[in-house]
Amino acid sequence: MKDIAKLGGILFLIAAICAGLVGFVNEITKEPIERQKIEAKQEAMINVLPSADSFEEAEANDEIEEVQIGSKDGEKVGYALTVISKGYADPIEIMVGITNEGVIEGIEILASNETPGLGDNASEPSFTDQFKEKSTTLKVSTSGASSDDEISAITGATVTSVAITDGVNKAIEYVESQGGGAQ
């Protein structure tokens, strides 16, 4: 009985010291991490919608996670939309930049947990650049894109490719519902 108390005490002490250290590091890194996240988001918005230079958050709907309206010199030029799509592993967070006219300026994968070496390649420009200049509802093709509304899938990661394309389509639909787009 005495032994158990002693061992328990030592284990408690070790756990308490470790927890204290982790808590301390968490405390001092909280602010820089928060700042990094905001900076990363700013950078992503500029990347997907280069024609805008300032962004303002607007009300989102069920399909869209976050809506940021981008403007230049006080005039609205387009949207930076964050959408979530079910990936192969976890949900994939995608930011899509679309102009008032409904044309995609760029997309960026904000967060994903796809298989390294396969689905993970979705964040490479060779995949994401395919979405640039598109303005219609898109389909995924596994044998190479042959028409304007097709995106060629990443080899070995069709599920990821479809998930991202679905997300982008949601963003396109949103802009169309807002009166933009190429109807």
Binding site: I10, L11, I14, A15, C18, A19, L21, V22, V25, N26, T29, P32, I33, Q36
Partner: peptide, 21 residues
């Protein structure tokens, strides 16, 4: 259990420091 607590704490601290800096 002591080793696991120590290892997990190290990894968590390294993760936080990397994310921040």
């Amino acid at each position: 259990p002591s080793f696991i607590v120590i290892i997990a704490s190290f990894v968590t601290m390294i993760e936080l420091l990397l994310e921040a800096y």
